[in-house]
């Protein structure tokens, strides 16, 4: 399915992800985090049917379990004793706190999985070109060189194997030496060749005047509206957060989980912020239905 959110200006996407990550690590409250995770899963589902997330499953699960266990293991603070292992107190506070952190971290990682689908290297490059043009060129060159270097390494290893030199045969010491000789050959060879790359840049006028950029991404009305929407919501949430709402105090005494009015206000804004891409997809789907 076509991805409507991906068609927004990169700045919008970038702002959304930066904001979402900040929210996930700032708004430590079980209800907030739980709902956020649901939304992020939906987001991933819409973007790539969870296939990206599936690749991270092992990492996500271990992180989750580790974080839940780790906190109660080291932390005996809290009033509500759940049980004791030997002399070690396992408290409700510790478990809740560990759980919140676990949710927050895997939420962030899941968000990055979606980020990797939406923010293609081109978009990031485009953003960099706007604020750091010289660095953007460096990044572009590096991105172009990485696959080249990989292919060259592969070639080096084939050619060297034909000479009887290989990293998979022989003693450990010999293999390390050979591997490093491969990298060294890659270095000398590539630096030798790259002079021509620099000449070709110069020949095409690099550094003569301020670079412009072939605009792929126009800032359209929809982008303006999106930015306004996101900025307003984010400011609201941060305002609430600064006064202690949308945040569960666990230590020294755990608050009740109940939400005050302002908490609910923050939660609503929070969910509206995170669901922004979902709204976009849903709107697109709706319009598509209408036109058919």
């Amino acid at each position: 399915m076509e991805n409507r959110f991906a068609r927004f200006h990169p700045l919008v996407s970038f702002f959304f992800y930066a904001g979402s990550v900040s929210l996930l690590i700032l708004m430590l409250h079980p209800i907030f985090l739980g709902l956020a995770l649901v939304i992020i899963l939906l987001l991933n589902f819409f973007h790539d049917r969870l296939s990206g997330l599936w690749r991270w499953k092992f990492f996500l699960i271990t992180t989750f379990i580790l974080m839940i266990i780790l906190n109660p293991l080291f932390n005996e603070r809290g009033r509500h004793l759940l049980f004791e292992v030997g002399t070690h107190r396992v408290t409700l506070e510790a478990v809740v706190f560990g759980g919140m952190n676990a949710l927050s971290i895997i939420g962030v990682i899941a968000l990055f999985v979606s980020y990797n689908v939406i923010m293609t290297p081109n978009k990031l490059l485009f953003l960099f070109a706007k604020i750091l043009p010289q660095f953007a060129v460096l990044l572009m060159l590096t991105l172009r060189f990485i696959p080249l270097m990989r292919r060259r390494l592969e070639e080096i290893s084939v050619v060297q194997r034909s000479k009887g030199i290989s990293v998979s045969h022989g003693k450990w010491k010999r293999r390390v030496r050979t591997g490093m000789l491969y990298v060294q050959t890659l270095l000398t060879y590539s630096l030798e060749e790259a002079i021509q790359t620099a000449d070709s840049m110069k020949a095409r006028g690099y550094g003569m005047s301020t670079r412009s950029s072939y605009e792929y991404f126009k800032f359209r009305r929809a982008d303006v509206l999106a930015i306004i929407y996101l900025v307003i919501l984010l400011s609201l949430i941060i305002y609430c957060r600064a006064f202690g709402y949308g945040f569960l105090t666990v230590y020294p005494v755990m608050e009740a989980w109940q939400l005050t009015h302002l908490d609910i206000g923050a939660l609503t804004s929070y969910l509206m912020f995170l669901s922004f891409p979902l709204f976009v997809e849903a709107g697109g789907l709706f319009r598509w239905r209408l036109s058919n």
Binding site: Q134, V137, L138, L141, T142, R144, F145, I146, L148, M149, R150, L153, V183, L186, L187, S190, L191, A194, I195, T197, A198, D199, M201, K202, Y206, G207
Partner: peptide
């Protein structure tokens, strides 16, 4: 202002570090 040669050199080194 970094000359193209230096820029290319930095990129080669960075990409070799990466692979």
């Amino acid at each position: 202002k970094v000359e193209p040669r230096e820029l290319v050199l930095l990129a080669v080194l960075a990409s070799i570090a990466a692979v």
